[in-house]
Design a protein around this nucleic acid. Structure first.
Lengths: 243, 243
DNA sequence: CCAATATTTTTGGCATACCAAATACCAGAA
DNA sequence: TTCTGGTATTTGGTATGCCAAAAATATTGG
């Protein structure tokens, strides 16, 4: 066997233990491919095109400059996430959710968020709760949310994520984020709708008030009803989004 | 469509061509490996051994009779599920949850199940709700749950899964099942504990009654509080289970 | 010209080989 | 014996090649 290679071998030095930073773990191609593909899938508007979107292993490997192996592993991970579905000898298809599935997901979101609200009333600090108002400080009666839908939509998502985070429950945070990723595709067309945007802000503020008052039951109810309202809205008005 | 493949029947050589049954779709090795490994992980008592359990790709591939490729893909899937964690150049370790994580998961479970209860009160059929009692028909004052812990524990899990299923929400069902898989490892030592088993049955019956009464708020509350009770129990008494 | 069929191409599934990092192991020096 | 340096081994990561099924395309018979 050939001699390996010298590591370093500082002659006489006694540099000892200074500044030996942990070398970058540097994520694997598998994980890089996973992140890249996930972002690409989330970025594309899969509901805009009439025919289903397909992925090609070889094309992707060439595109990302790696072999098929890490690509396939990334695909397997994405399939676990429910973003794609590989059909043997047919192809890899980007999953499109039906309206029913989206409504179902939003209901689960409501369940998780109401539990988060419940926990927050017993553990979160007052200042952290109050800080939730900052997400909407740019909106008021002189600057209505419905006149800045895109901007308000961003603040909306950020608010919900910050809310969940206050629960200090990693499980609730992760599960909710997963759901939001799936629902996000509809966000532009549903959560951002003007007619619903108008009622959204007051409901958010009402949730914050209940949290500050440490009213567990009320906070839970308001958080739940708010998101269930979104579910009902999508169920009623989301028809045109689906083939 | 015509026969895509020839059923070659050369005059001279007559043997062969028999018993070439059209093998079914037959899941891939990747999926087989995934199922096999998942079952193996769930079956082992990862909290019994002091040192962490490791998996070896090559050993597994030899064990299952397939190459490393499908094994690695299965591992990637299991990692997405949170069952294992691969450390580059170190190994694949079966993840052990801390008590805090388990409590956190049970809280999420409570959130999902209370939402399921809510939905059930508005959509499920009376007979299906009543049928939930059957899971406990073998228990009563002449046959106490705490005297048949193992058996009652099975009925307990089955009841909860049946309950969630009644919501007819695939998302709630899937998310809850995922959680149950992770929590299951503790089931024998926590859910099955005698002191808690005693109060479990009446609570279950109370949930069913609220469902039958179509009392949405009460059913939700009872379902939530029941499972939150388990969370509190584990938080208080599950100390000895963790290193 | 059309339909049935044969052929080529495409595509995911799987096996294998090699690499580099991390570790285990061992011989030799003090 | 113990410590040290280095080599061999282990282990996950990645690239490649081939296979079979299915789709796409070409071909042929009427």
């Amino acid at each position: 066997m050939p001699a390996p290679k010298q590591t370093k071998a500082p002659p006489v030095m006694a540099d000892a233990d200074i500044a030996i930073v942990r070398i970058a773990p540097e994520t694997s191609f598998k994980n890089k491919a996973y992140e890249a593909l996930k972002e690409a899938i989330l970025k594309m508007d899969i509901y805009a095109t009439p025919e289903q979107v397909m992925l090609d292993e070889r094309a992707l490997s060439e595109r990302l400059g790696v072999s098929r192996t890490p690509i396939r592993e990334a695909i397997a991970m994405l399939e676990q996430d429910g973003f794609v579905k590989t059909v043997p000898r047919r192809g890899i298809v980007v999953v499109r959710r039906t309206k029913t599935e989206i409504v179902d997901m939003i209901r689960a979101w409501a369940a998780l968020e109401s539990m988060a609200a419940r926990l927050i009333t017993t553990t979160a600090r007052k200042k952290d709760i109050t800080a939730l108002r900052d997400f909407f400080k740019d909106f008021g009666k002189d600057r209505l949310p419905q006149d800045h839908v895109e901007e308000y939509s961003k603040a909306n998502i950020a608010f919900h994520q910050a809310l969940i985070s206050l629960s200090e429950s990693p499980v609730l945070v992760d599960m909710t984020n997963d759901i939001l990723l799936h629902v996000r595709g509809y966000r532009q067309l549903t959560i951002g709708r003007k007619d619903r945007t108008a009622t959204s802000l007051p409901e958010h503020l009402a949730i914050i008030e209940a949290l500050e008052a440490r009213d567990t039951e009320l906070a839970e109810k308001r958080a739940r009803d708010h998101t269930l309202g979104l579910a009902a809205y999508v169920e009623a008005h989301g028809q045109e989004l689906f083939s």
